[in-house]
Nucleic acid binder design. Structure first.
Lengths: 117, 117
DNA sequence: CGGAATCCCGTAGGATACTG
DNA sequence: CAGTATCCTACGGGATTCCG
């Protein structure tokens, strides 16, 4: 999306808005963070939640989230491999924001899937 | 950006998150919305708030926000022209979300401009 | 003043194949 | 299982010029 990954925020006070956005911008970051709010998840577990994501993209988004300190990545030295993803401390502080996005979407977006039965 | 402007959200419950994000994603939309929370603004007035935006981009972002029903555009038939931008009803409901983004950014992002003196 | 029209480019994101 | 490695392209975004 959006901005060229972490480019400088030249803006005035509203700057913080874009700064935060830059972290959760990325086609799948929002959903990933959302799902991780429910707890630890393995790679394919997350993947199953995003039917149309490719491994490449999911990996990339996860790595960026990790680089931004929002999630942690725990690799288990075993065969077959196992990698656990979790929200980091910092990531948890984002929960209200994610929830705000989700809540608004549910309430104001047409057919987001969470349509009342 | 993120996502290819309003592409389908194939995701599960977290979908709403991306749906909301798709509306405020765009390099300047967040800030624009933020500033409009303070009240009506003319084109160049907004522009002055975003030192590095080009007219083309600002126009584009404003048009998209308008198309998404988040802001209103009032054109005055006079010379020189005058165009007022406002948050729409729907746009106002986004305020909590924008504020959440801004608040988190201020608290968790390094040098966003709002650094404590 | 508030745009529209052009031209141009980087990169986010996808498709596919291979691997420890 | 959880990734890399390549290749490819659409489009988000910028620079510049012209217009009512």
């Amino acid at each position: 999306m959006g901005r060229t990954r972490h480019d400088r925020f030249d803006c005035s006070p509203g700057c913080a808005v874009e700064a935060t956005l830059s972290l959760i911008d990325g086609k799948w970051k929002g959903v990933v963070l959302y799902h991780l709010m429910s707890g630890t998840m393995r790679f394919n577990e997350i993947r199953r939640k995003l039917p149309n994501v490719t491994q490449r993209m999911l990996t990339k988004q996860l790595r960026e989230l990790e680089a931004d300190g929002l999630i942690t990545r725990k690799v288990f030295a075993q065969v077959p491999p196992r990698v656990d993803y979790d929200l980091s401390e910092r990531g948890r502080t984002l929960e209200p924001v994610i929830l705000a996005l989700k809540t608004w979407g549910d309430a104001n977006m047409p057919s987001t899937g969470s349509v009342a039965a």
